[in-house]
Simulated scan of single mutants.
Amino acid sequence: MRRHRTAAGILLAVGALLTGGLLDAGAANAAPPESASDPSAAARTASTTEQHRARTFWTAERMRAATPLDLELTPQAAKRLQTPRTGGRSTTVEPTAAPASFPQAGGPWTGRGAVLSTSGRVFFTYQGRNASCSGNAVTSQNASTVITAGHCVKYQGNWHTNWVFVPAYNNGDAPYGKWAAAKTLTTPQWEASQDMNNDVGAAVVAPLDGKKLTSVVGAQGIQFNGGYNKPMYSFGFPAAAPYDGTKLIYCSGNSSKDFLLTQDHGLACNMTGGSSGGPWFTGFNEATGTGLQVSVNSFGYTFWPNQMFGPYFGDVAKALYDKAQNT
């Protein structure tokens, strides 16, 4: 979420920047997108060959070099989504221990708890360029689901390749391994028109060393149609100044509702590019590092510094999650 740009508009922290690292030749043979017969989500499947290539592609050096590209939209291009936001459903989880501070406009997470292992950096190749975002492991039927931003799986009509999730990323180290996506998904609204209200993505990651993701790193609960104006915590791995992508950063405070364009959640936060896709939690417990995920880092306004926005997890996000967890 880089804040210092001249054009007034919406800033997407996609977490992708030119680094000179091109895809290897085999990437041209990536599996094609699935047909969009199911309106609950648009999806892309990666072959086992591509999954293996992604894990080996992301060396410590390449991960350190993957930095964000800021992408802009004008306010006029932002889309309003008029959907009912009622009802609800949530899932819960278990965890460990931590301390920090509330509110917090942006700083390293100094506590412990489950968030240290469920959150991580997302790495991918976007149009031949190395790139990064953030993501989070959630409770799911397949024990393999990661939630991120829509633009962290697909942007401008192109699905990202070489997609991996690195939980507990630490300056080039992958203490829990690199989990390659078997499938990436996004909402039909993001797929069709990059609707900011539905900038939500998911990945179903392949087993690693015979184990499934959440059996190794744990999982956070997830909630839909949970309402607005609540105490929230946001996490991510911002990689644009003043941050460098090496640490888990968090913001916390009382959330608001974006009254300008999107009606999404807002939170005082100075996270920058690369934090996109990182989780927002309600009911977050600092001692255990757990909560219910209700949004992801998505965008900021250039004319409104130190404010982060994330999509409301309503029925559309729930359909995406259900599609992913049942894959």
Rank of each mutant, 00 (worst) to 15 (best):
R3W: 04
R5M: 08
G9I: 08
I10Y: 00
L11F: 02
A13E: 10
G15S: 05
L17H: 07
T19P: 06
G21W: 05
L22G: 11
L23S: 12
A25F: 04
G26T: 13
A27S: 10
A28I: 10
A28C: 11
N29R: 13
A30D: 15
D38F: 03
P39S: 14
A42K: 15
T45A: 15
A46Y: 07
E50V: 01
H52N: 10
A54N: 08
T56N: 15
W58R: 05
W58Q: 05
R64W: 02
L69Y: 01
L71W: 03
E72L: 13
T74I: 02
P75R: 03
A78R: 11
A78N: 13
K79N: 09
T83N: 14
T86C: 14
T91Q: 09
T91A: 11
T92P: 08
P95E: 03
A98R: 11
F102L: 00
P103T: 00
P103G: 02
Q104V: 01
A105G: 04
G106K: 01
W109Y: 06
T110C: 06
R112S: 15
R112N: 11
A114V: 03
L116I: 04
G120K: 10
V122M: 13
V122L: 14
Y126E: 15
Q127R: 14
A131H: 04
C133W: 03
A137R: 06
V138Q: 14
S140F: 04
T145G: 09
V146S: 10
I147E: 09
I147W: 01
V153S: 07
Y155T: 11
Q156V: 08
G157H: 06
N162V: 03
N162A: 15
F165R: 06
A168F: 10
N170S: 15
G172C: 08
D173L: 07
Y176I: 04
G177P: 08
A181Q: 10
K183C: 15
L185N: 06
P188Y: 00
P188T: 02
Q189M: 06
Q189Y: 02
E191Y: 05
A192W: 02
S193Y: 01
D195Q: 08
G201Q: 07
V204E: 13
L208V: 05
K211Y: 00
V216Q: 15
V217F: 02
A219D: 15
Q220K: 04
G221L: 14
Q223F: 02
F224E: 08
N225I: 05
G226T: 06
N229M: 07
P231A: 07
M232I: 13
F235S: 05
F237W: 10
P238N: 03
A239Q: 12
P242Y: 00
K247R: 14
I249F: 01
Y250L: 07
S252Q: 01
D258E: 11
T262W: 00
H265I: 07
L267S: 09
M271H: 05
S275R: 03
G278T: 04
W280I: 02
E286V: 09
S298H: 05
Y301A: 01
Y301H: 04
T302G: 09
F303W: 06
W304C: 11
M308Q: 09
M308T: 04
Y312S: 13
G314E: 10
G314K: 02
K318Y: 04
K318G: 06
A319R: 13
Q325K: 14
